[in-house]
Amino acid sequence: MEMSPTQVLLHPVRLRIAQAFLGERALTTSDLRTELPDVPPATLYRQVAALVDGGVLEVAEEHRVRGAVERTYRLRTGAAHVDGDAARAMTDDDHRRGFLTFVVGLLADMDRYLEHDDRDVVRDLVGYRQHALYLTDDETAELVTELRTVLAPRLAQGPGDGRRRRLFSTVLLPTDPPAGAAADD
């Protein structure tokens, strides 16, 4: 059975691999082994193949290295994104798995950061917060548009000029039913 890119990403290791490519990065499996040292090589190769088969990764280039072919991969444009139609098609269990995979990825990223001896959460501007906002649906849509506007030029920046790769993750969800809907007892 062929899986959609959304289904392919509903796996913790595959999501971590896809996240490694964020920021227009092109990586080999050797690069990925360096970035994800806790993932056994056989698992890494198998999951990269699943991401290629699922249309999430594509081969950017190939080189001969000591008689073997070394492939450099990159994210297919938009492949690691779940659009509105794909999100609507997901079951409740798909959403639970997807969110759990996302949270597990965040925990793994934090663990990798905390393993560095020279870390300094203040210097490195590490933060995690949760705020409760009271917004109408229109105000929420306006906020999302404003955030996209602020983030778009920064997402387009590449490495260099003293830049460090940083992960910026968001979760936006209502905590109560829409106005006029009956609340579950």
Rank of each mutant, 00 (worst) to 15 (best):
M1Q: 14
E2P: 13
P5D: 04
Q7N: 00
V8W: 08
V8C: 06
P12W: 08
V13Y: 07
A18K: 07
F21L: 00
F21N: 05
E24H: 13
E24D: 15
A26P: 06
L27A: 08
T28Q: 08
T28F: 00
S30P: 03
L32E: 04
L32I: 01
P37Y: 05
D38G: 02
V39N: 05
P40R: 09
P40Y: 07
A42M: 12
L44Q: 02
R46H: 12
R46Y: 11
V48N: 06
V48W: 01
A49E: 14
A50S: 03
G55M: 05
E61V: 00
V65R: 03
R66L: 13
R66F: 12
R66H: 13
V69N: 01
V69F: 05
E70K: 06
Y73E: 02
L75Q: 09
R76G: 05
T77R: 13
H81D: 14
V82R: 10
V82G: 03
D83V: 06
G84F: 15
A87H: 12
A89N: 08
D92T: 09
D92G: 15
D94V: 02
H95R: 12
H95I: 11
T101D: 01
V103Y: 13
V103G: 08
L106C: 11
L107G: 15
L107K: 15
D111L: 14
R112W: 04
Y113A: 00
L114R: 11
E115M: 13
H116Y: 14
D117R: 15
D118C: 00
R119F: 02
R119V: 11
D120C: 04
D120S: 09
V121A: 10
V121P: 00
V122N: 04
D124T: 08
D124V: 04
V126F: 13
G127R: 01
R129P: 08
L133F: 09
Y134T: 15
T136L: 03
D137Y: 09
D138M: 09
V144E: 06
T145Y: 12
L147R: 08
L155Y: 06
A156S: 10
P159S: 14
G160L: 09
G160Y: 06
G160T: 02
D161V: 09
D161E: 15
R164A: 15
R166C: 13
L167E: 09
G180N: 09
D184Q: 09
D184E: 14
